[in-house]
Design a protein around this nucleic acid. Structure first.
Lengths: 140, 140
DNA sequence: ATATACCCGACTAAAATAGTCAAGTTTTTG
DNA sequence: CAAAAACTTGACTATTTTAGTCGGGTATAT
C-alpha cells in the first residue's frame, strides 16, 4: 500500500514551488537541487503536471514553471490524478477474468474496498497544497 | 496506490470463513473453490494468518482453519498486518540515502504523509470482519 | 493404510517502478 | 546573432515487487 515516487515527488516539487516562487517561474534545476530529485525525473513529472493544467511553463532563460492555481485552491487529489495515481486500492473490474465477478460469495468484500477508496479519496480531496505549508517543523 | 492480492484474498477468505463455518473448520479447498483463489496461494496466505494468530488450524481429514476471534472482534487492520501490509504510504526513512532527510525544505511534505497513514490506518482499525458481512448485495 | 488437508521453503515469470538517455525546441540576454 | 538556459518528448532499461507455482514434507480421522 504505497504511493509511488512520482506522486510523492510531484507533491514535494509543487510544495517547493509554492514556497520559493515569488510570482516568478521556478526552474526544475532549482527544485532538483533543493529537493534532491533527479532533474530528468522531474522533467517527466512536470510534463504530466503541465498536460493536466496544474502548472504552466515559461520557456527560455529565466524560464521555469508556475502554479496555475494558488496553493489554497490546489487539491492534492488533482496532483495525484495528473500522474494517473487513481485511488483504486484493488483492480476489480466487473468483467475481467482475473478478478471477481460481483456475484454470489465472490467479492463479499467488494463494497468494503469501495468504501476504502472513498475514505482515501476524500482525504486527498479535502487537502490543499497550502495545508502542507503550515507545517511547523519545516524550515525555509 | 494498490493493495496487493495477498491482503485482498486474505480478507476475502476470512469473510468466506465467517459465512460458511458453523463452528467447524473450513478447508482451504472449499474456500479456493468458492472464491476462485488458487489453493497453493491460499496456503501461503494462511501460513501467515496462522503465525499471526488470526486463524488456528485443524489437521487431517475434515481439517481446515478456524477463526481465532469472532468476526465482530477481528479488525481488518490485524489481517493486513499479518501479511506485512503495513500502511506506510511512502518509504521515507530518516537516514536512508535514497529518501529525504527530514531537514530544511526537503520533506516539506513529511507530516502530510504521516497524516495520510493515520487516516488510512484508522479506517482499517475501525472496521471489523463482521462489517463486511452486512453487505446487502451479497448472496450466499 | 490411506486419503485428506495443513506445513514450509525455494523458485520464477511477468509486471511495475524508478529512473536515464538522446535529441530536440524555444526564448532571453550579451 | 550566438549561446546558454530551460522546457519537450519518446524511447529505453535495470531493478524490484508481485503473484503466484513447485516439491516435498507432516499430522490425523476413518
Amino acid at each position: 500500500m504505497k504511493l509511488n515516487t512520482k506522486s510523492r515527488y510531484a507533491v514535494m516539487a509543487l510544495a517547493d514551488m509554492a514556497v520559493f516562487s515569488n510570482q516568478k517561474a521556478v526552474s526544475l534545476r532549482d527544485i532538483s537541487l533543493r529537493q534532491g530529485i533527479s532533474l530528468l525525473y522531474l522533467e517527466q513529472i512536470f510534463l504530466k503536471l503541465k498536460k493536466n493544467n496544474i502548472v504552466k511553463s515559461v520557456r527560455g532563460i529565466n524560464g521555469g514553471y508556475m502554479l496555475v492555481k494558488i496553493p489554497k485552491e490546489l487539491k492534492i487529489l488533482d496532483i495525484l490524478l495528473a500522474l494517473d495515481q487513481k485511488v483504486k486500492t484493488i483492480g476489480c473490474k466487473k468483467d475481467s477474468k482475473k478478478s471477481c465477478n460481483g456475484k454470489s460469495t465472490k467479492c463479499i468484500t467488494h463494497n468494503f474496498w469501495d468504501e476504502l477508496d472513498i475514505h482515501i479519496n476524500s482525504f486527498f480531496e479535502s487537502k490543499k497544497l497550502s495545508d502542507l505549508l503550515k507545517n511547523k517543523e519545516v524550515r525555509y
